[in-house]
Simulated assay, not measured.
Amino acid sequence: MTSLIAAPGLLRASPIDFHGHTMSPSRLLRYLEIKVHDLIQDKDWDSIRVVGGYDRTAVVSRYEKTGKLFNIERPTATVQGRDLVLQAFPGADYVQHYALTIATYLALTGRSADIVTYQPPGQEQCRSALDTLALDLDGDLVIVGWGLQHLAPTNGVWTRGHGYAWQRAEIAGRRVVYLGFLHSIWGDVAGRVVERLAELGAGDVVYIGKVGSLAPGIEPNTWLATGNTSLLRGSLVSWDDFFGDFAAAQGGVQSGLHVSSPSILLEDRDWLAQHTSSYAFVDPEIGPMGAAAHTAGIRFGYLHVISNNLTAQYPADLSNERHDDVLRRRAVLVDRIRTIITRRLAGHPARSVEGTR
Rank of each mutant, 00 (worst) to 15 (best):
M1W: 11
M1H: 03
T2M: 13
L4C: 04
I5R: 04
A7E: 08
P8Q: 00
L10K: 03
L11E: 00
L11V: 11
T22L: 04
M23Q: 07
S26N: 06
S26I: 11
L29I: 08
R30Y: 02
L32G: 11
L32V: 05
L32C: 10
H37N: 05
L39Q: 15
L39C: 10
D44R: 09
S47A: 12
R49I: 13
R49P: 09
V50F: 08
V51T: 10
Y54E: 00
D55I: 12
R56M: 13
R56Q: 09
A58V: 06
V59H: 09
V59T: 00
K65W: 15
L69F: 05
T76W: 11
A77D: 06
G81K: 08
V85D: 07
Q87I: 12
F89T: 05
S112W: 02
D114R: 04
I115D: 01
V116M: 00
V116D: 04
T117C: 01
Q119N: 09
P121K: 02
Q123W: 06
Q123H: 12
A129N: 05
T132H: 04
L141Q: 00
G145D: 00
N155I: 01
G156M: 11
R160K: 09
H162W: 15
Y164G: 11
A169Y: 10
R175K: 12
L179K: 01
G180P: 04
H183C: 03
S184I: 09
W186H: 14
L197P: 00
L200F: 03
G201W: 05
G201K: 07
A202Q: 07
I208A: 01
I208L: 09
K210L: 15
V211N: 00
A215G: 07
I218W: 02
N221E: 06
S230F: 07
S230T: 10
L232G: 01
V237R: 00
V237D: 02
S238W: 15
S238I: 13
D241S: 06
G244F: 08
D245Q: 10
A248R: 02
Q254V: 12
S255D: 09
G256M: 02
D268H: 02
S277Y: 14
M289Q: 12
M289L: 08
H294C: 15
H294A: 15
G297V: 14
I298L: 11
I298H: 04
R299Y: 06
G301Q: 01
I306Y: 15
N308D: 15
Y314Q: 13
S319C: 15
N320V: 10
E321K: 13
R322L: 15
V326A: 04
R328W: 14
R336Q: 14
T342E: 14
H348F: 12
R351Y: 13
T356F: 15
